[in-house]
Design a protein around this nucleic acid. Structure first.
Length: 264
DNA sequence: ATTGCTTCCTGAGCGC
DNA sequence: TGCGCTCAGGAAGCAA
């Protein structure tokens, strides 16, 4: 569910709400949600909140890193009433001033992991380049994809190549790039790589501007929806602006939407 | 090394 | 109304 723009919107919302707050405790309501990769204890105050791919990274004064992944249906909701609990509350991060962050997650795939600051975190090390950074350019794509025969759709979903894209944005990016999602990655031309890079940046920054996309579950820290769903061109659509029907197929077990006329 | 299949879990929406 | 089926934005783990 939450992809880069949604995760970034959540982080932006957290900045002026929880930075500098002292974490009293983390309550786990559902086993299998919170993992301590170090001795359980005081985390201290929140120093910074950042993002890598779809991971939220919270650093604290006690040399800890809290890694949060929302997976499909996870939400982080800031709540000033300590007693209030959401419908699928899996964990709570409680602050000294009696405010808290609710970790709500219907499908329970999301995780909160606590590490020491200098721990090696394999999940982060494996990630590919950040799509909005300068490292992500056509040369990088060309180098990474030259031997990849899998469909370009599958490759763009691979976090080891680009970190932060999910099913919705990949569909939109390939639509704007006018590329057939079934096309083998190594068959793209240099011009197409260049175009993909441009469209990745364009779609993600537009989505960020509109606080992400809400299809069903996604909410920001104030429990508000995003607005980018009104700008989607193919994902979940029946017809293309060109008049032809949008095709819906399965790729690697996930639904792919594309316009057979506009995307070649 | 790369690929694609399965799995984790709950809930919504559909047809009958 | 209710049952059973399919589907859902992610990614680790596994086998081929």
């Amino acid at each position: 569910m939450p992809e880069l723009p949604e995760v970034q919107t959540i982080i932006n919302g957290l900045q002026n709400k929880v930075v500098n707050k002292n974490i009293t405790k983390i309550i786990e309501h559902r086993p299998g949600t919170v993992f301590w990769n170090k001795k359980e204890g005081n985390l201290g105050e929140i120093v910074s909140i950042s993002r890598r791919g779809k991971y939220i990274i919270i650093q604290t004064t006690n040399k800890c890193k809290i890694l949060i992944h929302l997976r499909m249906t996870g939400k982080l909701i800031f709540e000033t009433n300590l007693k209030k609990v959401s419908s699928h509350c899996r964990a709570e991060i409680i602050f000294e001033d009696e405010t808290k962050l609710l970790f709500d997650d219907v499908r329970t795939f999301g995780k909160i992991e606590i590490f020491s600051l200098d721990d090696y975190i394999p999940a982060l090390e494996k990630l590919g380049s950040e799509p909005l950074s300068k490292d992500f350019n056509y040369k990088y794509l060309n180098k990474k994809l030259i031997k990849r025969k899998a469909p370009i759709k599958n490759i763009l979903l691979d976090q080891k190549i680009v970190a932060g894209l999910g099913n919705i944005y990949v569909a939109e990016i390939l639509y704007h790039s006018k590329i057939d999602p079934r096309k083998p990655a190594n068959k793209l031309t240099i011009d197409q790589f260049k175009n993909v890079v441009i469209q990745v940046r364009s779609v993600l920054s537009d989505a960020l501007k509109y606080n992400g996309t809400t299809i069903s579950d996604y909410r920001n820290v104030d429990d508000k929806t995003g607005e980018f769903q009104q700008f989607l061109k193919v994902y979940g659509k029946k017809t293309c602006e060109c008049g032809s029907m949008i095709n819906k197929i399965k790729q690697a077990g996930r639904s792919t939407y594309f316009c057979p006329e506009c995307q070649r």
